[in-house]
Simulated scan of single mutants.
Amino acid sequence: MEFRAVAKYVRISPRKVRMIVGTIKSKPVEAGLDILKFMPQKAAAIVEKTIRSAVANADQHSGVDIDALVIRNISADQGPTLKRFRARARGRGTRILKRTAHITVILCDDLA
């Protein structure tokens, strides 16, 4: 069985989240959470919260062993980009792109 959780419109670049995601794909949930706990990046805390949400979703179903869950897939997709302007020299302005991400976590009972 698959269980999922989605965090949408997170104010962090998807590229920064993807660096974290690669280290915990296809690992048991407990091992993945232990790895994320000691990572200093902001994205680690966001991904950890999303994984805990997916575990809570799995806990709602009866007959599911929470300790046997495995992280099947995590993806960080591009969300809408906020466009802002910043004053520059000689009366000009440059565009600042504030990117957002949609993070999807999929857990399963076994990695088959």
Rank of each mutant, 00 (worst) to 15 (best):
E2F: 11
R84I: 11
R84Q: 13
K83T: 07
I74E: 08
L111Q: 10
I106A: 09
R88G: 10
F85E: 08
K8I: 07
R86H: 11
K37I: 02
P40H: 01
A76T: 00
G63L: 06
K49V: 09
E2M: 13
S75W: 03
Q78D: 11
A45Q: 13
S53K: 09
R88N: 12
A31Y: 09
V17T: 11
A43M: 03
A58K: 05
A89N: 10
R90G: 09
S75P: 00
V29F: 04
A5I: 10
V10L: 15
S26L: 10
M1D: 15
I71E: 03
K16G: 14
T104Q: 04
R99Q: 05
T81R: 13
L97G: 06
P80S: 07
K8P: 01
I35F: 04
V47T: 09
A7N: 08
R99L: 02
K37Y: 02
I106E: 09
S13C: 07
I66T: 12
I24A: 12
V55F: 03
I24R: 07
R95A: 08
K98D: 01
C108T: 12
G22C: 05
N57Q: 11
V6Y: 06
T81I: 15
A112Q: 08
I46P: 02
N57P: 00
G63W: 06
K8C: 09
R99S: 06
R15M: 14
F38D: 00
R18F: 03
P40D: 02
G93E: 12
A101W: 00
T23N: 02
A68Y: 00
L33K: 09
D67F: 03
G93Y: 14
G32K: 03
R11S: 11
R95Y: 03
I12Q: 04
K98N: 05
K8T: 12
T81K: 15
K98S: 03
R15V: 13
Q60D: 12
I103M: 00
I35L: 14
R90K: 15
G91D: 05
R15F: 08
N73V: 02
L33Q: 03
A76S: 09
T104E: 07
I106V: 14
I103H: 00
A101R: 00
I46Y: 06
D67S: 13
V55R: 14
R86W: 06
T81H: 12
L82W: 10
T100E: 02
V105H: 00
R72S: 13
A101E: 00
R92Y: 08
I46H: 06
N57M: 11
A89K: 06
A5R: 11
I71L: 01
P28E: 15
R88H: 10
E2Q: 14
L111F: 03
V64M: 04
P14K: 11
R90M: 15
L111W: 03
R4K: 15
D110N: 11
H61M: 14
T81W: 05
D34I: 02
A101H: 01
D77V: 00
I24G: 06
V17L: 09
E30K: 11
V70Q: 05
K42H: 03
A89G: 15
Q41K: 06
T94S: 11
A68I: 03
H61Q: 13
